[in-house]
Amino acid sequence: MAQKNGKTLVNINKLSKLFPVGQGIFGKADSFVHAVSDFNLQIKVGESVGLVGESGCGKTTTGKLITRLLDPTTGNILMDTEEGPVDIALLKGKEMKTFRRRVQMIFQDPYESMNPRMTIFDTVAEPLNVQGIGSMSDRETMVADLLETVDLVPASSFLFRYPHELSGGQRQRVAIARALIIKPDFVVADEPTSMLDVSVRTGVMNLMQDLADQFDVTYLYITHDLAVARYMCDRIGVMYLGKIVEIGETEDLLHNPKHPYTQALLSAVPVPDPTYTRNPIKISGGITKPVDPPPQCRFYNRCPLADEYCKTHDHPPRKEITPNHYVACYHA
């Protein structure tokens, strides 16, 4: 079991990422997409947190900010280290390399996330290679052991094959092995199962859960599928246009959704049971790009509860309505 000592592993404060749009020749942008704005999230050691939202809600950008594939515009991400919390944006050189050892990422597309010219061995050994861990023969044993742990058995029949010779499910297992080979504390998984077929998907999801316990890994699980998030996560945060509108323990959130967006999302998910009737959803329209959003609730123009107060006030602050259940809505 992962050490669930209640310690905060990652603490995200007022994180924002703005992308310029309509850039002129001289690099002066006239407006910005607020992909992630004023985003707060604490992830505790050993838990799995899900980030759920529709496409364009900023969940992938958030993942890239946490793994420092992108640098935040404002705000910070504090990662717990032996010397206390450290802002990852300030890491340089050797500290950065150590950070890279602690945080790994699993991507959505098993076909694109592997270099087609590298064998499975080279792919999985890459983190060891760049981190300079182990001798060549050590690496070979480490990779082979881990491949068997992710149920690619026997490892010798996979080591020196190329990604295109493997099926989608097998490739995603390789991607998981690659993420875990340097024993990270924290793994950001961006829709790791959304491109897999149902009959293989369950295997990969169960494997990820087993490995979380075995390797003491904390997950941030990014997905558009609430049913998958329910299965994988202890807590779920619902994102809408760059902000978390509601976050809570998984079952609590699913059974007592408070934010009108969460309610809509929940009643829109089809249920694999022909006798089940869903609640009708009350919102209409689609998600828009948050280009220079007005200072009001992001959900204002689709919200069934919207009133004058919402129109004239800033995006609602997050409040705790029941223990561990936070909602950002004036009407909750």
Binding site: V198, T202, A227, V228, R230, Y231, V271, P272, Y276
Partner: peptide
């Protein structure tokens, strides 16, 4: 098998 490997929110 298909019916029992599909996660549901209800």
């Amino acid at each position: 098998a298909l019916m029992s490997c599909f996660p549901s929110i209800v």
